[in-house]
Simulated assay, not measured.
Amino acid sequence: MSTLAWFAFASLAAWVWLLLGQGFFWRTDQRLPPPRDDEHAREEPGAWPRVVVVVPARDEAGVLPLSLPSLLAQDYPGVAEVILVDDGSTDGTGSLAAELAGRCGGLPLTVASPGEPEPGWTGKLWALRHGMALARARGPEFLLLTDADIAHGPDGLRRLVSAAVGNDLDLVSQMARLRAESAWERLIVPAFVYFFAQLYPFRWINRARPRATAAAGGCVLLRTETAVAAGVPEAIRQAVIDDVSLARAVRRAGGRIWLGLAERVDSVRPYPGLGELWRMVARSAYAQLRHSPLLLVGTVAGLVVVYLVPPVALVTGAAAGDAPAAWAGGAAWAVMAGSYVPMLRYYRQPLWLAPLLPFTASLYLLMTVDSAVRHHRGRGAAWKGRTYARPEAAPER
């Protein structure tokens, strides 16, 4: 066989293994679990625990009118309140939040400001530190940590608490459905969640004996006593990938974790152009690789073999009369596209996007390389006007 055919068969073998041996990552059926006990007798907790919602926000005036009212309007039977931490905004985020609370009513809202981060802290975790300290003074059993661009269904908090209490979970996290309306969002956003699930298969995370650990930072319900035991957020104060770091800290403290896809938790933040999406991925991609050049080389090679070889082998093999290369490349591409279909359906996107996954993967490859280049130039992770030249990677579990 030709060299190209060998690479094509290697890619096909990798896809067969990914399809069957990587925690069925491509399935989208990991949703909030019902209580473990009798489903009819314990659909909801008998005594609803106190919850404080903590929202770190920096220059979020553009999205708050779409997100904050959904939190204030939560239909929660117990005692709950919202703390929005205005992290040095210059667009009137704090005053807008207070105005929305006065106009919409609902859960009580407190707007606080932590000042500029101390050395050794990333901005979001500094804001969370301040908000969580204020929250703990209220004596809540649970904290809901949610981003300022996340809109929640009216029963979202009720369902999160029911899942946590009914299954004795310390951290319940839902991956919000990101916006996928512009052409670039449709091409890149579903793949972002697909790649995340491939790296951290939800089924592995949710097993009694977990094989992976992760969370989705946009929506995290955290048991307060577990946060204290894990030393959160101090233990992860430099993390750029704060959600994965949080999950690992909770797991190290003996906490039980669940992660799945959301049904009524949506991000309202628009990413209309490629530039915005590129910056979103590039700011943390190299941190995910623990700033390791060797891991970067391995990741690039893996992406090339798994995602780019199949279409190249099919087209080149067919043109050159190399039947084994064309057959193996076509089969690998078909498996790849088929595994992407459930995620496209979850995002309500046309299925013709599935064969374009190699192109999307090539963009992610370039974003990852760009992330490494930025790091080695001392620019590191940049977000909302702040740059972290050499932030720590997420610690291992």
Rank of each mutant, 00 (worst) to 15 (best):
G298H: 08
V189G: 01
G338I: 00
V52A: 02
L366V: 11
L199T: 11
A97K: 09
L277F: 14
A319G: 03
Y346W: 15
I241V: 05
T122L: 10
Y347A: 04
A135D: 01
R50F: 07
A127H: 08
S362H: 08
G217D: 06
M132A: 13
A133K: 13
Y347I: 00
M132C: 11
L199C: 06
V306C: 11
P108C: 04
P272T: 10
V373T: 03
M343L: 13
D37L: 09
E392I: 02
R179K: 15
W383A: 05
G166N: 04
L128F: 13
G231P: 03
V305W: 14
Y346D: 05
R290L: 13
H152R: 00
G217S: 05
V52T: 14
R269P: 00
R209H: 06
T3N: 12
V369P: 02
P355E: 05
V52I: 11
W6G: 00
G139R: 14
M367N: 05
G105T: 07
R207N: 04
D29N: 13
V63A: 07
W184T: 07
P114E: 00
W278Q: 07
R36N: 00
R136E: 05
P272V: 10
A216Q: 01
L246Q: 01
R203P: 00
Y364K: 09
I188M: 14
L128K: 04
T387D: 11
T213M: 12
M1V: 07
G21Q: 12
P350K: 14
L18W: 15
V189P: 01
A57P: 03
L64K: 08
Y346F: 14
L246Y: 02
P69R: 14
S267M: 12
W15L: 06
P33S: 06
E234I: 05
A313Y: 12
A216K: 04
I83K: 07
A285F: 12
L296K: 13
L19Y: 08
G92H: 04
A381D: 01
T110F: 08
G218L: 08
T110K: 10
Y271D: 03
Y200Q: 12
L96F: 03
V63I: 10
G94A: 08
R386H: 12
L246G: 03
A332P: 01
L134I: 02
L66G: 10
F9A: 14
V79C: 05
A47K: 13
A372L: 11
